[in-house]
């Protein structure tokens, strides 16, 4: 794993209005097979991808929000959410889906980490590859 690269998927768009959230998730799932160090960042309207209670019955879309909850099964454990983006939109972490993962030692560890803009900048600066959607 020492030659594994750090991949960050940067999500800045709400789901359904454009296809980027869904197709970003498809890359994440495929990418999991490559055993790289994967993190997801949710900034600006991207935080809406993690909203609890998404209901697409009336709009004709496939509701893919449950896929985020399964990311732990793909060893994707780091979902960084920018606090400023939540605040600007009148949201808090309580509005987001509970997303957890298991490690060898512990179960149901939270995957979502709410970080400040400064902390997010640091996370981004530690990556080898940033894929933007």
């Amino acid at each position: 794993m020492s030659d594994a690269k750090k991949f960050l998927y940067l999500n800045r768009k709400a789901p359904y209005g454009t296809i980027y959230a869904l197709e970003s998730l498809e890359v994440v799932l495929i990418g999991a097979a490559f055993e790289q160090q994967v993190s997801l960042a949710f900034v600006d309207d991207g935080v809406y991808q993690l909203m609890a209670g998404q209901n697409t019955k009336g709009s004709g879309f496939k509701n893919f929000s449950n896929t985020y909850k399964a990311l732990g099964d793909y060893d994707v454990r780091n979902l960084y959410v920018e606090k400023e983006s939540l605040d600007e939109r009148g949201l808090s972490v309580d509005d987001l889906m509970p997303i957890t993962h298991d490690t060898d030692d512990e179960e149901d560890l939270p995957s979502i980490m709410v970080v400040s803009r400064a902390e997010m900048a640091k996370v981004m600066s530690e990556q080898d590859v940033v894929l933007s959607f």
């Binding site: 690269k5 991949f7 890359v27 495929i30 990418g31 490559f34 790289q36 080898d128 590859v129």
Partner: peptide, 9 residues
């Protein structure tokens, strides 16, 4: 899509 990850690597 693996070709995208492969390019990143």
């Amino acid at each position: 899509l693996g070709q995208l990850i492969d390019a990143g690597i």
